[in-house]
């Protein structure tokens, strides 16, 4: 009996719930694999799709969104070995899974912790509720899995949709994660992950008028320029920590709406 030849994986992009190649047909070499090298057009397509997905995702009940995030953790648990092989190892995977579970539980608590009922001087029931900001661009920081999950989970648990640019040097685990997302009932377009050259993609993401917020935790020397580009439509810009876990990270991607509802007979 001859030894079996393994079937190798082709690493592609993750856009709108599907795994397309780059429309440009380009790839680049990372960690010994050919990885899709997304073009600017791929990125613009992903942003359009993320925007379309926003209404459905933010319109789901918080309970439901929480279950979807928990389901992501379940899928990650099943693929621990595959994920571990593509990042620093089992510890990073375990931390990333636990972080996803932690954020899953926040979905139906945010409004209570971040919102408020406001005692105004007048006959109004006045309340403030958090709402998603919109399409959020994320430059994933290292470590490649935990960094990505730490920045992605707080964005989507609040009802935003995400366009992620994976680490350029360590893109494989991001696509492995995409396979967890694709089988976790995450509605198509809620998370889109692109691999490719940061220097090409990041300025397009930062300046795109349909992107409402930017997580630049993974930005290198180009952070200031990206912030400048983001100001053109007053983007909410966050430079957090790659390993943080906090409801304040969720709040950074939420708007607050104050409603004055009349009281009267």
């Amino acid at each position: 009996m001859t030894e079996r030849l393994p079937v190798q994986k082709t690493y592609k992009l993750f856009i709108g719930g599907a795994f397309p190649r780059s429309e440009s047909g380009r790839t680049y070499l990372a960690l010994g694999a050919n990885v899709a090298c997304a073009s600017r057009k791929d990125l613009r397509d992903a942003i359009r799709i993320a925007r379309q997905a926003g209404g459905g995702w933010s319109g789901m009940t918080a309970y439901n969104r929480g279950q979807v995030l928990y389901r992501i953790a379940e899928m990650m648990e099943m693929r621990q070995a595959e994920l571990a092989a593509l990042c620093s190892g089992p510890d990073e995977v375990a931390a990333a899974i636990d972080r996803m579970v932690w954020y899953a539980g926040w979905s139906d608590k945010l409004a209570q912790v971040i919102g408020s009922a406001n005692p105004v001087a007048g006959p109004y029931f006045n309340f403030t509720v958090p709402e998603p900001t919109g399409v959020t661009g994320i430059l994933a920081p290292l470590p490649p899995l935990l960094g990505l999950v730490s920045r992605l989970a707080p964005v989507i648990v609040g009802g935003n949709t995400a366009v992620v640019i994976a680490s350029e040097s360590h893109p494989l685990v991001a696509i492995e994660l995409a396979e967890c997302l694709a089988t976790a009932d995450v509605p198509p377009g809620v998370v889109n992950i692109l691999t490719g050259l940061r220097s090409e993609l990041a300025p397009v993401l930062a300046s795109h008028m349909d992107v409402a917020a930017l997580d630049l935790t993974g930005a290198d020397g180009d952070g200031a320029e990206l912030e400048r580009l983001g100001a053109e439509n007053v983007k909410r810009i966050v430079r957090g920590r790659a390993d943080s876990q906090s409801p304040y990270d969720i709040a950074a991607f939420l708007e607050l709406k104050t409603v004055w509802h009349p009281i009267g007979m």
Partner: peptide, 19 residues
């Protein structure tokens, strides 16, 4: 929108977040 007034308009209060 950050502030929604129902059956009123242009009301402000220090306890009500605005932005």
């Amino acid at each position: 929108a950050g502030v929604v007034w129902a059956n009123t308009y242009n009301r402000f209060d220090p306890a009500a977040p605005f932005g």
